[in-house]
Design a protein around this nucleic acid. Structure first.
Lengths: 218, 218
DNA sequence: GCCGAACCGTAACGTACGGTACGGCCTTGA
DNA sequence: TCAAGGCCGTACCGTACGTTACGGTTCGGC
């Protein structure tokens, strides 16, 4: 039985359906992977029959929930006109800060948990259910797509020097995230205050510029 | 009912018990979290009654399995006498290479998957079962404990400059791991050849030295 | 040889949960 | 006003799996 919700777009959702997915999302954050269809139905004040009609099965509900959350975090593109060291620095700090906020949020942690847990070697019966791919696509790869143009602009402005944008991005990623995500996923209490995130963003940006900044020596 | 196997040490295990845990470990790598007690018993050619007598319950078996694996990866300490830039570089590259090999191994991925999956907000009934803490302790924190003395030695030898060893370690960690672990955990195929690992180790070490190397300018 | 302990293999029990069916309510449209 | 459809609440079914129970076998000690 095919789910009637379009998997690809994540759009064409009734307000009611969005409310149901929001309930599922909240439940996911509160209870982790072992959320039951009954619990979702009760929380959303809908019947299980409706859940199955709309989303097909538990996998479909999970997938729709993840995509619904992903569709909510569309980000604003960075303008890259008039790029100088100051604006590039600000952009990088902004990216770093946003990314740290994302990966330390309860929602992201819960979604990554369920995606990681379902990414075992057994799954992947048919083409569906690759939650890991969805999370990856809307997380790490989305970040890369948004950041790389900035890096390229920085290179063309003569501020940055690198031959491989992908490698430069991954270095930036490492400098920003470090051990934060894996520690949070493994349950380490690690309270990131806004001040700490801001400081980390500045540090990561400075380190990145130290590694990839164009040598403007004498 | 208390498990008869000492949880803390992971020692005092019969050869037979070690064999059973090895079987569980293999099954964990092959099948992910949904390994059943029946499957373990069949694979290990033992009875379920024995599993319950030895490990208490499924949680106990999982915990014992993780600790058994952790106890197997005792690493050799690095000697830090006669430290110069060449030997420090070699040590750092060795650490980076070893760490990349670990986090990209099937065993590590499987163990981290199950630990992440069980680290939800609901668990933690009593003091037991903090698989996340165990994995973290034998992974990230063990690496920090081994690497920090090397960094300190480098500083005292005048090769490195930093004020916070923890911060320096975390930067090194980020430069080495980057997005590798989260991508692998989320199911991204990402084949790391020995050559790629070696190259990454060299790159990460050079970047780290560029950031934290003592300025020996003219 | 005999006894008890440890252990294997398997059958059985209880429960949790995914999935389905159904009766009743409410809305919509003719 | 009435019929049809969408949806809620709930009862129900089947299965998977954790957990327990039990008969049979091996092995060390006396």
């Amino acid at each position: 039985m095919q789910a009637s919700v379009d998997i690809d777009t994540g759009e064409a959702l009734t307000e009611r359906q969005k409310a149901v997915l929001d309930a599922a999302l909240r439940l996911l954050v509160e209870e982790g992977d072992q959320l039951t269809m009954t619990a979702v139905a009760r929380r959303a004040s809908c019947s299980k029959e409706t859940l199955y009609k709309w989303f097909g099965d538990r996998d479909g509900l999970l997938t729709a929930t993840v995509q619904w959350q992903a569709s909510k975090v569309r980000v604003v593109p960075v303008d890259r006109k008039g790029l100088d060291l100051a604006s590039l620095t600000a952009s990088l700090e902004r990216f770093a800060s946003d990314w740290l906020k994302v990966i330390s949020s309860d929602t992201s942690i819960a979604l990554n948990r369920v995606a990681v847990g379902r990414a075992g070697p057994i799954r992947r019966k048919d083409g569906k259910d690759d939650l890991g791919a969805i999370v990856l696509e809307n997380g790490r790869f989305a970040l890369a797509r948004r950041l790389k143009p900035v890096l390229e602009a920085g290179r063309q402005a003569g501020i940055l020097e690198f031959s491989d944008a992908e490698a430069a991005f991954r270095t930036f990623f490492g400098l920003v995230a470090r051990d934060v995500q894996i520690r949070l996923l493994l349950g380490d209490r690690l309270e990131l205050t806004d001040a700490a995130i801001g400081g980390d963003a500045v540090r990561a940006t400075q380190q990145f510029l130290a590694l990839y900044g164009a040598k403007t020596g004498p």
